[in-house]
Design a protein around this nucleic acid. Sequence first.
DNA 1: ATAGTATACTAAACAAATTGAGTATGTCAA
DNA 2: TTGACATACTCAATTTGTTTAGTATACTAT
Lengths: 181, 181
Amino acid sequence: MALAHTILATLGDEAYSGYDLWKKFSQTKACYWQASQQQIYRELGKLEKEEAIDSEIIAQKGRPAKKIYQITDKGIEKLKNWVLEPAEPMAIREDLLVKVISAHLAPKSVILQEIERHRQIHTQQLSVYKEIEQQNFPDVSKLSYKQKCIYATLRCGIGYESYRISWCDEAISLLSEETSK
Amino acid sequence: MALAHTILATLGDEAYSGYDLWKKFSQTKACYWQASQQQIYRELGKLEKEEAIDSEIIAQKGRPAKKIYQITDKGIEKLKNWVLEPAEPMAIREDLLVKVISAHLAPKSVILQEIERHRQIHTQQLSVYKEIEQQNFPDVSKLSYKQKCIYATLRCGIGYESYRISWCDEAISLLSEETSK
DNA sequence: ATAGTATACTAAACAAATTGAGTATGTCAA
DNA sequence: TTGACATACTCAATTTGTTTAGTATACTAT
């Protein structure tokens, strides 16, 4: 599965501790992979066992020591082989939509407010991505191939949040209408 | 979790067997919930144990007998309570994007062809949804509230596939460009 | 005849994800 | 000095999802 590979890909650029990875995931990686702290620590343990990564303990002043991980040649090989395999599109499992098809069981305002709440969440996330875009990708024409790849994932996140916001607007408008039946 | 609730919501309209539900899931439910046959059968077993649904075995001519399930009052109550709770936005875990950030490990054509393949998958799914839209929702103004809710989920699926196609186009264009660096 | 496909369901092992409880250190503000 | 928060990591239980392997009936095309 791809959590291992996302970690490998991230460690390909720089050494990170589990905690650093977790923060990275909740920030810039969020547009394509979400994982909890526990998942990341467990996966790091597994990857170290199979020697795809190795670790080093770094003492810090004024902070607990941290264990930073580096990708090994074996890990690079593993990642490379995986990239060559075809990827399945993500499975859609959207709780909100299950609630929408069950919406008639509750007062109309419940689902409308919930969609509005989601609209806000996606608007917030979109502004985070747009901020990253402005800060890190001011001039697309000057990007290296590797940077373009990262930028493409950010654009995917921006597209996703925009699509979600549009759908929320459409759904609110559709479900707010007066219905004779 | 929502597989149980998706099943309950589906059984709210009509009695289905596990096999029927599975087909329903791979067709019209696909825009908001995906589940395998095995998952559905297991979930049905659980739901029956907790008396949210009950079953009846129906003999058929020229086919194996089937076990059809109906929602109980307890099940309706369970679904209703769940609808009132807030829903978390779906976690994004998109293998393709992990491959995109690792794309520099393979020849450029590998990732471009893979994105093109995904573009085709999403184009195919979009046309399925549009066909359903034309067949089942020719006149939105005549829909009941309950039907509008179902239609809203279809519109979400249509929006999703459209967004995916647009992103594939953008990514192919971005990554195909000549890069000096 | 038999191979392939569709219907209809069960079981079990395994992998991945979630949830909750802990441990420990250090900063900062009330 | 107490409580909240951030850093940094571990362990265990449970749920959810995937994979593989079955059983069994019946239709259809070769």
